[in-house]
């Protein structure tokens, strides 16, 4: 999706707030929202890719101006409305108009001990062989994709080099429903001069993790 979220290399953005205070949260509501997100039982089978795509669909003006955790709130609210778990009126008032039957009891404070030490994995076993090997020259897909995808615009139709094969990972483009298929994933590096007209003689490189269907042999 050619959305506002695809920010890499966009120009005109101003300075970075290098003097930001070191505390993890800068407002009580930010901490509260982060805690809610870690604690609440999802009323639907939402994949990480569906979460990301729903966030990408936030109105561009809101995407650029709303605080980060406020965007998370908006994303979960939208997923709840879309799945039928809540209405806009319920989210606006905080009052439930109808019960959600069949849900397990919410996570307890004791569950945090285990949950905080849990690794999530997104790779899958496969006996298939990857097409590319380290050192291979590849060119990225020139068109991108209409829906969710993880090939940024700045790296489309560019020549890169396979650095490493990372195993078979769930292809985000196929995982809106959580039933995605796995594909070879590679770390691919690009010369800064391949990406940016002003890079001049800089020897710098940009590394991306890209799925096999984003690539063809160059």
């Amino acid at each position: 999706m050619d959305g506002i979220h695809d920010l890499g290399g966009r120009q005109g953005y101003g300075p970075i707030d290098v003097g930001e205070p070191p505390e993890p949260f800068h407002a009580a509501w930010e901490a509260r929202l982060l805690g809610i997100v870690r604690a609440f039982t999802r009323p639907g089978a939402w994949s990480i890719d569906w979460f990301r795509h729903v966030r990408e669909c936030i109105d561009p003006a809101d995407y650029l101006t709303r605080p980060y955790y406020d965007q998370w709130l908006q994303t979960y609210a939208a997923m709840m409305v879309d799945s039928g778990a809540a209405t806009v009126a319920e989210l606006a008032t905080g009052r439930s108009a109808s019960a959600l039957p069949g849900m397990p009891a919410p996570a307890t404070p004791e569950s945090v001990e285990t949950a905080k030490k849990t690794f999530a994995r997104f790779d899958r076993e496969s006996t298939a062989a990857p097409t590319f090997a380290p050192g291979d020259a590849v060119r990225t897909n020139p068109l991108g994709a209409a829906g969710h995808t993880r090939l940024p615009q700045y790296a489309r139709d560019k020549r890169g080099r396979i650095e490493r094969f990372r195993g078979f990972h769930i292809l985000p483009d196929s995982n809106m429903t959580g039933k995605g298929t796995a594909e070879p994933l590679y770390t691919v590096s690009f010369d800064a001069t391949e990406l940016w007209p002003e890079a001049g003689s800089r020897r710098d490189r940009v590394y991306l993790d890209l799925w096999e269907s984003y690539l063809e042999r160059a």
Binding site: W29, G35, I36, F40, L73, A86, P109
Partner: peptide
């Protein structure tokens, strides 16, 4: 907005506020 979301999730039986405190 966060306050409304939290009270809705509690009413729907999806959230224990003590668990939010623990994560924070």
């Amino acid at each position: 907005r966060v306050k409304a979301l939290e009270s809705l999730l509690v009413e729907k039986g999806l959230l224990d506020p003590r668990t939010v405190d623990a994560w924070i």
